[in-house]
């Protein structure tokens, strides 16, 4: 059982690494575009909290922004990919437990997944 566990984990680990590198690449592309188009003059202030623009808080708004070539939306999309990697991790682990016929830990993974999806439900 231990060996399958390790193989499964390694596959999951590699998937995660790929996901993170992909997310980082998207963030980098968005970042370069953002800096090219950033206005000259002093930087923006972040000492007062207003919360970021509404369209950067939902997948729908972010997608809309990307279609309009908005650099900040591209960065935010990369961050969404990043946030998705641990969620994928839990899903893959759940599938792995199912394949090992480990029902108990399939349900444990499902509970963790439910909590994650509850949190992500806020950005619908």
């Amino acid at each position: 059982m231990r060996l399958t566990d390790e193989k499964l984990e390694l596959a999951v680990g590699r998937t995660l690494q790929t996901g993170v590198l992909l997310a980082a690449a998207v963030v980098l592309i968005g970042g370069v575009l953002f800096l090219i188009h950033s206005p000259a003059g002093p930087r923006a202030e972040y000492s007062q909290f207003h919360g970021v623009a509404r369209h950067l808080r939902t997948p729908h708004g972010i997608w809309h922004g990307i279609l309009h070539g908005d650099a900040e939306s591209i960065i935010q999309f990369g961050l969404l990919l990043l946030i998705a990697t641990p969620v994928v991790r839990v899903m893959l682990a759940g599938v792995g437990f199912l394949m090992e016929r480990d029902q108990l830990y399939f349900w444990v993974s499902s509970i963790v997944l439910a909590v994650l999806l509850y949190s992500l439900w806020h950005i619908r």
Partner: peptide, 28 residues
């Protein structure tokens, strides 16, 4: 750590805590 952090990310994002301009250089 990653799974734990992902559980607050949705709430942070919806409240406007995650600024792309700041998160970009910090995350990279």
């Amino acid at each position: 750590i990653g799974v734990t952090a992902a559980a607050s990310a949705g709430i942070y994002l919806s409240r406007g805590y995650i600024s792309p301009e700041l998160a970009m250089p910090v995350m990279l």
